[in-house]
Amino acid sequence: MTFLSLEPIRVLLYLVGICAFVGANAAYLVLAERKGAGRIQRRPGPNEAGWAGWMQPLADGLKLLAKQIMVPPGTDSLLFRLAPLLVMAPPLMCLVTIPFGENVVARDLNLGLLLVFSFGSINVMALMLGGWASRNKYAIISAARVVSQNVAYEIPMLLVVITLLMMTGTMSLQEITAQQAGGFWHWNLFKLWVNPLMPVTFVIFFTCMLAETNRAPFDMAEAESELVAGAFTEYGGMGFGVFFMAEYANIVVGCCLATVLFLGGWQSPIGILSSGAWGLLWFFLKTYALILTVIWIRWTFPRTQFYSLLNLSWKILIPLSLATLLLTGAMMKLPLLWRALS
């Protein structure tokens, strides 16, 4: 125990753990996605490799690894190679501060939320670089879309988070989780006495997360019926594979964050049994439920139009999140005002 509590060893263990977590998630979420799509479309999905297709991620990975990585002539080969690396780094960094359980957190920073958002924004840069460096018209259109989409959705997302911060008064994710202890009625999602619009806030957050991670119905960057594969058009082999993994890693981060911020993190919904391994169980149950919802949404809706996507952000989500922000402020401060007056 003393050995494990040594700081460098602990950090190293977490590093390996997070990398493995992201890798396994990316691999098996692809399978889950394909299986889920299959179920929705009433077909079995991949079922040849291994029992019921469980070896499919391995087969896919081997195939991608075996492919030659081509750098198209005339591209900026440094940027072209750098983009997949850059796209993978932010989600790994974001997971550092996510509390998976009562004691399972790589590093509980008191500015954890800020760290998550600042690294989350780098993701856009990587996609833009990849699109720009590809020297492909589709990729460049896609890069332009990614930037405007992410800028547009960062705002309502941050406004929503500010609402939360006003409630919690802390940026430490572990502390935010701790505040939601004692049953699901204590989760931020249901704190209706602080802000009756809290479920709306969650929907806004979830929508923004979909848009930030370029998931359908907001997959403007990879709109394959318009832009072939968008920013990834010129990537093949593992270059493409890393972009693909990063997409899923981002979804995992987004859903983890949603769990921590709104669904009580590792807190049990019934108020008891949230310590130790139970906490891990609750956390992953909530997170994967959200991830499955993301998959479900993808296989249900058509893609939104680009300007209606921006309209949604600027005309609906931002005013709504501003309204929740104001309402929360009012709900929190008015009693104080009233007490001061009386």
Partner: peptide, 15 residues
Amino acid sequence: LLDLGGFTPILYAFD
């Protein structure tokens, strides 16, 4: 619907 990015309807239609 495929052009619009919806993948599922074509399979229902093909059914």
